[in-house]
């Protein structure tokens, strides 16, 4: 074996080790709780759920679609949802964003209604998913989660964690407003930059 091949062979483990080290080092900064949704590009699954305020009124998948919207999964036991709530109110007040609220396995109907009365209700429709039936079909594994659904009822995006100005500007807002643009709906002046 010439000296050159010998050096090459001896260096191989070092190179492999360095590659592994880089790979593992990058892994330190990846977030294992961020799972890709398998539902992107699919229709919102069919469901039948009671209204949060009126137990005898039921909603089904026909309330989804017709216009771009958000489906926001929340619960009163979820502290992050509390932090997120102010921003949702702001989305409704300032940008008229259409949000369907999916109350996910809450402690009680009363607690959820009280929460909305105290903090304001940013939701156009409120679904009460006490058993987590629709949430399971949506692949929800925590709260809050937000889905962007287009006018055809197709899921475009799923965000795990709370919505806030940064997330809205960089991730969720652009998807929502692009869907709005496709349906020929108006976009607020100060959010035009998100679709440009």
């Amino acid at each position: 074996m010439s000296v050159k091949t010998r050096t090459l062979v001896l260096l191989t483990p070092l190179v492999l080790f360095l590659l592994l080290a880089i790979f593992l080092f990058k892994g330190l900064f990846s977030d294992p709780t961020k799972l890709d949704s398998a539902l992107i590009g699919r229709e919102v699954p069919s469901f039948e759920l009671p209204d949060l305020y009126q137990p005898d009124v039921t909603h089904n998948q026909e309330i989804v679609g017709g216009r771009p919207m958000l489906i926001n999964v929340w619960a009163t036991w979820c502290p992050t949802c509390y932090a997120e709530h102010t921003f949702l109110n702001q989305l409704l007040a300032e940008e008229d964003v259409y949000i369907i609220g999916l109350n996910y396995k809450d402690d009680s109907r009363g607690a959820a209604v009280r929460w909305l009365q105290d903090l304001g209700d940013p939701y156009a429709i409120n679904l009460f998913d006490f058993t987590g039936l629709l949430a399971l079909d949506l692949g929800v594994y925590g709260a809050p989660e937000t889905f962007v659904v287009d006018a055809e009822g197709i899921i475009r995006y799923r965000h795990v964690g709370d919505l806030n100005e940064r997330v809205w500007r960089t991730e969720v807002g652009p998807v929502y407003y692009r869907a709005m643009q496709e349906s020929g709906l108006e976009i607020p002046e100060h959010r035009m930059e998100l679709v440009e």
């Binding site: 799972l35 399971l136 692949g139 594994y141």
Partner: peptide, 8 residues
Amino acid sequence: MKVRYGDF
């Protein structure tokens, strides 16, 4: 389950 939660 995979349709909902992915291969994971």
